[in-house]
């Protein structure tokens, strides 16, 4: 019969209780962090929100001298730069994912895939300074004059490309953001395409479909949810990105129709002005911007995660 030392056993039980509580506490801490973030932002933003009311979100004015603040310009800049970034990065990322899953010779697959993932690991400040020192001058000298001369005169779209070629501005920030988000979108889409069962693709080929036709009629419909989730997750990152845009956005609290004009985003406003903000209303307004960003990105990311979880569950079911 096995002999059990009762003191030893009691000690083991105590260790178990301690360990289990520790892990549970750590897990709950995660929830507390999110709650803490929400609450502290709310508290910090309260003075500004109660002072300006709902008008805070609809006013363009941003004047530290007269202590008048409105979030419209930063919100506009955040949305427009993210939109430009997604318009550029999603098709390109789709193309890269397509290449990696269908076309790439096996020898290259690993290295190109790794290159994409390493690009995703590069911190955003690097993209920021690259944008400032390399991309902005490039756009200023070669691309923007072309846009102003050739597209500027066209009636409707032309309004987007007016004004002097500063180099920095909303468009440049959008492009830098696009380059930053691209590896993430490409990697996510590639992972989604990899979950398509080979038998399903072979069924498409079996009907005499070309590679593109299999992708368009079988792979994409099958991966719709995953693709959308990945895109939304990328959008969430783009909306919250600070360092990539702060260098090149121009930091002007203005809304202009031209994409070549300087503007500002929520995160770059906070990054640029927070440490120098004098006065409670100024600081509180910046925190209020942070709260808005938190709400927007929370919603987008939550929806994206929900979609990706649905895909995970389906991928695990047999086919």
């Amino acid at each position: 019969m096995a002999i059990i030392d009762s003191r030893h056993a009691a000690r083991q039980l105590i260790y178990e209780r301690v360990f289990r509580s520790a892990t549970l506490a750590a897990a709950i801490l995660v929830l507390l962090i999110l709650g803490g973030v929400a609450l502290s932002l709310l508290r910090g933003a309260w003075p500004a929100l109660s002072h300006f009311g709902f008008g805070f979100v609809t006013r363009e004015i941003w004047n530290p001298v007269t202590d008048e603040y409105g979030a419209l310009a930063p919100i506009y800049g955040t949305v427009v730069t993210s939109l430009i970034a997604m318009l550029l990065a999603v098709p390109t990322g789709f193309g890269i994912a397509l290449f990696l899953t269908e076309l790439c010779p096996p020898v290259l697959k690993r290295s190109i895939g790794t290159a994409v993932e390493l690009l995703a690991a590069v911190p955003s400040i690097i993209f920021g300074i690259w944008g400032l020192f390399v991309l902005a001058p490039l756009l200023q000298r070669h691309v923007q004059p072309w846009l102003i001369d050739h597209i500027g005169p066209i009636p409707m779209i032309g309004k987007l490309f007016q004004g002097p070629p500063f180099g920095i501005g909303v468009l440049t920030a959008g492009v830098v953001l696009a380059v930053m988000v691209l590896p993430f979108i490409a990697a996510t889409m590639r992972d989604v395409f990899d979950t398509v069962p080979p038998m399903l693709k072979e069924s498409g080929y079996g009907l005499g479909a070309t590679t593109w036709e299999v992708i368009w009629h079988v792979v994409v419909p099958h991966s719709r949810v995953g693709m959308l989730g990945g895109i939304m997750l990328g959008l969430g990152r783009a909306l919250g990105e600070t360092m990539a845009v702060t260098f090149v956005i121009g930091n002007a609290h203005r809304i202009s129709t031209s994409l070549l004009a300087p503007g500002t985003t929520i995160s770059s406003s906070i990054a640029n002005e927070f440490t120098e903000a004098v006065g409670d209303l100024y600081t509180s307004s910046l925190i209020a911007l942070g709260l808005l960003l938190f709400l927007i990105t929370f919603a987008v990311i939550a929806i994206a995660q929900a979609m990706l979880r649905r895909l995970e569950r389906r991928a695990l079911s047999p086919l």
Partner: peptide
Amino acid sequence: SELRYRVGMVFQKPTPFPMSVFDNVAL
């Protein structure tokens, strides 16, 4: 692809495409 149009294949597990019954057959 021309060959595969003329030689049809059915697999071990059912592999319906993510579309309607009609569209599956019509594809």
